[in-house]
Computed example of a mutant assay.
Amino acid sequence: MNGNQIEGLVGMVLVLGILVLMALPSVLGVLRDRRIDRQIREAHEDRGERETPMAQKAQKSSSRSTVPSTATWYADGRRSKKFVSS
């Protein structure tokens, strides 16, 4: 091998190394997302086996009060005003 071939080989290895370094974070992110999705799916399956179906459960009402928000109160007040043209 002469000097030009060695220089070309070193350049090619450097370019491939930089490409791997740039692609590595995205590949690791995809693998992590797939692992998390699998864990979530398994948790849902385990939870579904332990609990009774939703149709058999009695639906409970919320214990929170049903006080309207400030935005609702303001909108109701604005709608109730009558505009009279002179």
Score class of each variant (00 low, 15 high):
T72S: 14
G48T: 02
V10Y: 00
E49Q: 07
S65P: 05
N4A: 12
D33F: 15
Q56G: 08
K57Q: 14
G77H: 03
G8C: 01
Q56F: 12
V20N: 06
R34Y: 11
T70M: 15
Q59W: 09
R79D: 01
R47H: 09
M12W: 09
S62I: 02
K57R: 13
Q59N: 13
L21K: 03
D46K: 14
L16K: 10
G77E: 00
V15S: 12
I36A: 01
K57E: 11
A75F: 12
N2P: 01
L31D: 02
G48E: 07
N4S: 14
I6W: 10
R47P: 04
E49M: 07
H44S: 04
L31E: 03
E49L: 09
A43P: 02
N2T: 04
D33P: 03
L28T: 04
G3R: 14
A71V: 06
E42S: 05
V67E: 15
R38H: 05
H44I: 05
W73F: 15
I6R: 06
R35E: 04
G17H: 01
E7M: 13
S61K: 14
S65R: 03
L24A: 11
V27H: 00
D37S: 11
F83V: 10
F83E: 14
R35V: 02
H44T: 06
P53H: 05
R41K: 09
S80A: 05
R41C: 04
L21T: 03
R64T: 15
V27S: 02
S80G: 02
I36M: 00
S85F: 14
I40A: 02
Y74A: 15
V67S: 08
H44Y: 11
S86A: 13
M54R: 09
V10N: 03
P25N: 01
S63Y: 08
L16P: 07
L31V: 13
A58D: 14
A23E: 08
S63R: 11
S80V: 01
V67P: 02
S65E: 10
I6P: 01
G17T: 01
S86C: 09
R78Y: 09
E7C: 15
G8W: 01
E45C: 04
R64F: 07
N4V: 12
V30E: 13
I40P: 00
L19G: 09
G8V: 00
R79P: 01
L16D: 06
R64G: 04
V10S: 02
R35S: 05
R78P: 02
L14S: 06
G48H: 03
V13P: 01
Q5L: 06
E42K: 04
S61Y: 12
R47I: 08
W73P: 14
M54Y: 09
T66C: 12
K82N: 03
H44P: 05
D76E: 15
S85M: 13
K60N: 10
G11I: 06
S85L: 13
T52M: 09
G8L: 03
M54G: 11
A58V: 12
V15G: 06
S69N: 00
A75G: 03
